[in-house]
């Protein structure tokens, strides 16, 4: 399936682009992270410590075991620092 992925803050900087569309068979966010990490070093650098990477699916915060079926957009970013 095709999936839009967006990145923010230092996750975006490490991966080197703000948005991309990938073709993947990953069933969960965790599988997607493993797939990207195996693909290139820049992904491995961004996802080295998933304790400090937050994930949103279709603009809602989820955990790593969230399923990707029927998902349009996945976002990866550091813990938020609003306010």
């Amino acid at each position: 399936m095709k999936l839009d992925i967006v990145y923010f803050a230092w996750v975006r900087e490490r991966i080197g682009l703000p948005r991309e569309t990938v073709e993947t068979d990953a069933r969960t966010v965790r599988e997607l992270v493993a797939e990207l990490t195996a693909r290139e070093d820049r992904y491995a650098a961004a996802f080295v410590d998933m304790d400090v990477v937050k994930v949103a699916i279709d603009q809602e915060l989820v955990d790593l075991d969230a399923p990707l079926a029927d998902v349009r957009e996945v976002a990866f970013f550091p813990p938020m620092t609003g306010g």
Binding site: A56, T81, G83
Partner: peptide
């Protein structure tokens, strides 16, 4: 909640 649940990042 704005501090840690609104998707903003400061540099």
């Amino acid at each position: 909640f704005l501090k840690s649940r609104a998707p903003f990042w400061k540099k």
